[in-house]
Design a protein around this nucleic acid. Sequence first.
DNA 1: ATTATAAAGGACAATAATATCTTTTATTAA
DNA 2: TTAATAAAAGATATTATTGTCCTTTATAAT
Lengths: 144, 144
Amino acid sequence: MFSKSCEYGLRAVIFIAQQSLLDTKVSLTTISEAIDSPQAFTAKILQQLTRNNIVSSIKGPHGGFYIEMEAMKTLNLSAVVKVLDGDDIYTGCGLGLKQCNEDKPCPLHFKFVDIREKLKYMLENTTLIMLANDMELDVFHLKT
Amino acid sequence: MFSKSCEYGLRAVIFIAQQSLLDTKVSLTTISEAIDSPQAFTAKILQQLTRNNIVSSIKGPHGGFYIEMEAMKTLNLSAVVKVLDGDDIYTGCGLGLKQCNEDKPCPLHFKFVDIREKLKYMLENTTLIMLANDMELDVFHLKT
DNA sequence: ATTATAAAGGACAATAATATCTTTTATTAA
DNA sequence: TTAATAAAAGATATTATTGTCCTTTATAAT
C-alpha cells in the first residue's frame, strides 16, 4: 500500500501529534524509539515533512519536532501521504497504465473506482488531531 | 498498490485469457507487444505464473502461453496477485506493523478494515473468464 | 565566548526491484 | 536427424528504495 518511508512517516506524525497535544516537543531519538524505526532514515523522512510544513522543528537544546495546533486541525493523512508517496494512490491505474480513465479504461478501472474513492475519503477526512486524540485512549499502538 | 511485476502479470494474464477464449495460444513476443511491457522481464513473470499453475505453456513451434478453460472459470485476480505480490495486501498493516489486529490495532486499523475488505472481495470475485469476456467488448485496453 | 544539544544537509552503503542477456531444454516440421 | 521455434533457466546489469555515517548549522545554557 504505502512505501516504508510513508509508513514510518505516518507513524512519526501520529506520535508527534499526540505529544504536541500535551505541548511536548520530541527529539529524533525519542521518535524513532517510540515508533521502532531506523533513526537516521527517520531523520530524512522528518526533513521532508518539515520542508513541506507538515511538522515544525526547532534546533538546539530543548528543541525537537512538534506540530502546530492549527496544523493538526487542518492537516489530514492525505497531506502526509502526498508528501512521501505522491498522489499515485489516487490517480494511478491499478494495472500501471499511464492513461486510464472512464473514456479509455483498463479492464479493472470501474472495479477499482469505489475502493479508491473510499480510500481517498478516509485519508482526506482523518485529521491529525483526530488521530492524536485517539492515541490518548491508550488502545492504539505504533510499534512491533 | 501493486508492484510492477504484478501489474505486468495481471495485464499478461488478462490478455492470455482473452486469447484463450478464442483457442489461441500466444507467444512471449505477442504478449509483451500487446500489453506494452519489457519482454525479458515479462518472461520471468510468466515463468512464475506457469510454475504456480495460473497459466499453461507449451514449448517449440506453435507453442506459447494459454489458460485452460477450467482454470479461467476457477481462478480470480486474487490468485494472480498472491503469486506475484504475496498476500500482504490483505493481511498487512497500513502502517507496516508486524502485529496489528483487532486486539492490538494501529491507529488506522479500523479505518482500513472495510477498504481492505472491499478490495479483497473484488479481487476474489473477479474470475479470469469474466475479464476475458469483458475484453471482447472492445472498450477496455491493456497498454499505454 | 564556550560547550552541549539537536536538527539539517550531504555523501555514501546495502538491499530489493526491475530489467536484460545468454544458454539450455522441449517440441515441431522438413 | 537436422533445423527452426519457443519457453525455461541461469547469470548479470541497472535503478530505486532503504538505510547509515559524517559534517554543518542553529539554539540554549553556563
